[in-house]
Design a protein around this nucleic acid. Sequence first.
RNA 1: GCCAAUGUAGCUCAGUUGGUAGAGCAGCGCAUUCGUAAUGCGCAGGUCUGGGGUUCGAGUCCCCACAUUGGCUCCA
Length: 646
Amino acid sequence: MNITLPDGSVHQYDEGISALDIAQSISPRLKKATLAAELDGERIDAFAPIHGDHQLKLLTFADENGRWAYRHTASHLLAQAVKHLYPAAKLAIGPAIENGFYYDFDTTVPFTQDDLSAIEKEIEKISAADLPLERFELPRIEAIEYMRKLDEPYKVELINDLPEDAVISFYRQGDFVDLCAGPHVPSTGKIKNVKLMSIAGAYWRGSEKNKMLQRIYGTAFEKRAELDEYIARIEEAKKRDHNKLGRELELFTTVDVIGQGLPILLPKGARVIQLLQRFVEDEEQRRGYMLTKTPFMAKRELYKISGHWDHYRDGMFIMGDPDDEQAEVFALRPMTCPFQFMAYLNRSRSYRDLPLRYNETSTLFRNESSGEMHGLIRVRQFTISEGHLACRPDQVENEFKGCLDLAKFMITTLGFENDVTYQFSKWDENNTDKYIGSKENWESTQNTMRNILNDIGVDFVEVDGEAAFYGPKLDIQIKNVHGKEDTLITIQIDFQLAERFGMVYTDSDGEKKYPVVIHRTSIGCYERTLALLIEKYAGALPTWLAPVQVKVLPLTDRTADASDKIRLELEKYGVRAECDPRNEKIGFKIREAQMQKIPYMLVIGDKEIENGVVAVRSRKDGDLGTMPLDAFIKDLVAEIAAKSHD
RNA sequence: GCCAAUGUAGCUCAGUUGGUAGAGCAGCGCAUUCGUAAUGCGCAGGUCUGGGGUUCGAGUCCCCACAUUGGCUCCA
């Protein structure tokens, strides 16, 4: 048989030999490194016999799919170890994931941290035993019978749900067998440096209606050093956690009697958000937006029109008895759309009025589930750079592009351009109850959006079931220090709510028509944006956003008055400056300013006064030497105006 | 909402098998007037998250609530 390798070279081999044998023929070292293989692009076991002519790629730990096989096998070692230590545990599923793997178990008693150490030891034993993995297939009936005998009800359910024509394969390693599509590495001895990271509850098949299982997360690396580095990186990332830094830097706090998801923005945090809001509102004004200020609450009738009463009631804070049809029931707003629609409805609109762009720095209230709250990233009251555009169908494309351009401008200004991903969030056609409107309507709107995205050349992924109830979204996603992804910015196309609200415009032909509505944010939610800025810059916010930009540090009491004058001079130029006149050593004052991540410190001693200069220290580069105050101010003002970040 | 962990001074933490709370930093006072990441001494500071219970006695044990954290589900 002829095997073509990725470099294009063709080699002849005997029928039925495996990818491992082929690797061996190239070098013993390659055989050792080979974890799995791709045969004509299909992932296979490296130990599987090959017949006929094919393209072959050997997968090592350097390949994403190689790592996948490695960690998937590690999850089988985990399952085997758990079965050894807790024979009554039932197996659910155990896939490889980004940076690791997990396995779900049904156990009578939850795992503890101590259990994890014991399981890790057992995994090491299984690795040391170097058990070969073998694959075998069974017909459906026998496969079910086999798993019944092993008393694995979750596996039986999985097999039952496999498609008619599915190949049902199993992998055996020693005394352990698991239902699995593979591929796997040749033997358990390959799997080293396994670290069990955490225990979590997880619903069977991801549905809260099902039983909650015990999930063990782990990771595995080929080399010890890689594992150590990965763990060190996680520890390093945790130090950037906004929830820790944001509290230490006195940007925000929480109070238990106020309640979950209701953070207090302290003066420094409020200052940063104020700066962001001014920046956003000014930029939006420049781009033709008109600012509205609409109420924080409305009667339920408004939400009945919008559909929120039917589709989002659980997420709203409602004042009054929602079941009493006679009563006047109010609800805090969970979004701004219907309010800005009322602004549109203020008078009749002509096609000449469109596009109409409304923006609002809008505070919203959402009754998120109690387990969802997370620092400033997921809260129950937040303020968002909201906006709604009403446009004619022929304007949708341009307006959408304008929204994306604004979003990208914000992302770039904040320095997030390499941290975001674009997600095209579509409806779930198998669960239409969650949405309003017809299938045709959804299909055509989604096609419109997809065409625009393709036309712009955005690199996006499509995800089903993530749309708003009224239309598809472009979500700009970002990950926090724990790797959890959230939406930073969203742009949505809505062909439905205008009709519900009776929003029309008179077209050039005299006909009344419904405008297309674009729902969008430009910088997203301010609290969340602040959180991500803290994490991105480890608390050292870019100078233009720093709550305090310059700390003036008199060396002795003799220079305290002069230092305060310098502070006043800085403030004349709009610089946020503070003076630290305390009778402390200069090293101590510097240490404090440094820990507060203040961009610049000016050390003022007798020498500086005498020479008419300031001694500049930057939080990043340390002592910068002396310069005239006006020169420092000039550079600083330029840096702030440029909104530079590094 | 579900599975778990955690909750002691403003912050970071210690507190043995239940016997009535301790350190460092921060704060305040005094001394020191100092040259680029912590000057010294002293003082003050706690209903041990809240509420029940067990006990002669609870920060320690049990129950409930609240909050914080990691996941799951959810996320207009």
